[in-house]
């Protein structure tokens, strides 16, 4: 039960709670001399899905308070005589103050607010912009709205699948050892490979169910579309599930207690997957040694493949390297666990 619910909870947690996108951010506005232009601009900001005017401040003290008690994350302050200056001098000042306790979020707030102000400015003075004023145009490829779910769904998929598959299987054989049933199984004509396959099989089914749950949630709850071929995605995922199960199996054959197996699969896999798979930190920015290590993290290759297929919408032929690396990993892991499987108790 827990094994089936865990991915649901995690994906929802990552999807909503840990989202870095800007949505309904509370804004405090200070416009001492409200006029037509400031009103329009404020309305424009309020109307956008990114911001919500929470406080209309009357002096700078109100702005400070709004930040302090957390009612606002962004302040927009118009200088006195804003519209007059704009029409007469051709320029006026707006001050944007962001709560930078979360620097990433603050940058996005300012960026979004700046965009809204710019577009308003263009509408207001089409002549000026036509006169060769260079406006940078930023295009967010594949993810124009910068929806963070696009980034983390492949990441969470890679992490959850690895964690659940590896953790479940890592306990599987160790439990037999702890319960003493391994003793009887060993004193039987069962071949080690059959013992291992039969241990993997139920968890494979479970993992596939988990995969399906995550996919359903991402598509229907988080609205992350599958841009590429769904079949390719499933094929890559099945391969990845197999790699994870084999990894768990290897852990299971080398440990002797459930606790140790849990610890290795939990701690030993969680951190590298979180940090080195490109899920949180881009691999390209890592120092050489870490980049090298990240090559051995299966999630890195899987996440890359999922991003390519699911978000970029390319086909399985574009992720040949990822598939090849994962296949090699699968084969090596299975060979290692069969070799490591002890035909005796010690």
């Amino acid at each position: 039960m827990i094994l089936l619910l865990m991915p649901v909870i995690q994906i929802i947690l990552f999807g909503f709670a840990m989202s870095t996108e800007v949505k309904n951010t509370k804004v405090v506005v200070l416009a001492n001399q409200a006029d037509e232009v400031t009103r329009q601009l404020i309305e424009r900001i309020d109307a956008s899905q990114y911001f919500e005017i929470a406080v209309i401040a009357h002096n700078s003290g109100d702005v400070d308070n709004a930040f302090r008690d957390g009612t606002a994350k962004l302040a927009i302050i118009f200088e006195n005589g804003f519209s007059k200056k704009l029409t007469h001098e051709g320029k006026a000042h707006i001050q944007l103050i962001a709560d930078a306790t979360d620097p990433n979020a603050a940058t996005s707030f300012v960026f979004y607010a700046g965009n809204i102000i710019n577009s308003y400015q263009q509408e207001l003075m089409p002549v000026q912009s036509a006169a060769g004023l260079i406006q940078p145009e930023v295009k967010m490829l594949y993810n124009p709205q910068m929806i963070s779910a696009y980034n983390f769904v492949p990441g969470v998929l890679g992490m959850i699948m690895l964690l659940i598959c590896a953790m479940m299987t890592s306990i599987a054989i160790v439990r037999e050892k702890e319960m003493g049933t391994m003793e009887i199984l060993l004193v039987s004509p069962m071949k080690p490979i059959y013992t291992m396959l039969s241990k993997i099989a139920p968890y494979f089914v479970l993992s596939v169910i988990n995969f399906a749950t995550i996919m359903l949630l991402s598509v229907y709850v988080l609205h992350v579309p599958v841009a590429g071929s769904f079949i390719s995605l499933v094929l890559v995922s099945l391969l990845y599930i197999f790699v994870s199960l084999a990894l768990g199996l290897l852990i299971s054959t080398i440990t002797s207690t459930q606790l140790a197996a849990m610890f290795i699969s939990g701690m030993g896999l969680m951190l590298p997957v979180m940090l080195l798979s490109g899920m949180i930190f881009p691999i390209e920015n890592m120092p050489g040694i870490l980049r090298f290590i990240s090559n051995f993290v299966p999630a890195r290759w899987y996440i890359d493949a999922v991003k390519t297929i699911m978000i970029k919408g390319l086909s399985i032929t574009e992720v040949g390297t990822d598939v090849a690396v994962l296949s090699v990993m699968a084969v090596l892991l299975v060979i290692a666990s069969v070799k490591k499987f002890k035909v005796r108790l010690e």
């Binding site: 003793e183 004193v187 039987s188």
Partner: peptide, 29 residues
């Protein structure tokens, strides 16, 4: 391993399986 029967000192059958399932399981093994 094919010709001996072994009953360890610690009860080592599958506790979650029923009596009949245990017997069937070991017969299959």
């Amino acid at each position: 391993r094919e010709c001996v029967g072994y009953m360890p000192g610690k009860f080592s059958l599958y506790q979650d399986l029923t009596v009949e399932e245990n017997l069937e399981f070991f017969a299959t093994v």
